[in-house]
Amino acid sequence: MNIAEVSRKFDLSQDTLRYYERIGLLPSVPRNKSGIRDYSEEDCRWVEFIKCMRNAGLPIEVLIEYVTLFQQGEDTVAARKELLLEQRKQLLARMEDMQSTLERLNKKIDRYEQSVIVKEQELKKTH
């Protein structure tokens, strides 16, 4: 796949894909004879992984560290696992914060809805 196809498939700009490759977040994508990036299925799996992790809020620096460790081979499995465990812990904490915020918003919205209902009932009584 060329960069335009990958861009469409994963809804990422071509500039973002180039940036990810330039900073080492995405392993170097091979090029065809014309010098055009030629993404393999493996490259696309990396793009999908990176997009998923970024959408979850993982920092680029952490993902670069993960990719670097991955490229170093099997000796880094424990380090990669530890890195992912720490990120999961942080993600769970953010999710708890978000859940708390959602509950607070729901209560606030409920109060406004109750207020509107009360006002509508009062208006009906006066008419």
Rank of each mutant, 00 (worst) to 15 (best):
N2P: 06
I3C: 04
A4C: 09
S7T: 10
K9A: 07
F10L: 11
Y19P: 12
Y20M: 09
I23H: 05
P27M: 09
S28H: 09
S28P: 05
P30E: 10
G35E: 05
R37G: 00
D38V: 01
E42W: 03
D43G: 06
D43V: 00
V47P: 11
V47K: 04
V47R: 07
N55G: 08
A56Q: 14
I60H: 14
I60P: 13
V62N: 07
L63C: 06
I64C: 12
E65L: 04
Y66V: 01
T68E: 06
L69W: 02
L69R: 06
F70S: 15
Q71P: 08
Q72H: 08
E74D: 14
D75S: 09
A79V: 03
A79G: 00
K81C: 03
L83S: 04
L83P: 08
K89Y: 05
A93K: 00
M95T: 00
E96T: 05
Q99P: 02
S100K: 06
S100Q: 07
T101S: 07
R104P: 02
K108C: 04
R111G: 14
Y112S: 01
E113F: 08
Q114V: 14
S115K: 09
S115L: 09
V116L: 14
V118K: 14
K119G: 01
E122L: 14
L123H: 13
K124T: 10
K125Y: 11
H127C: 10
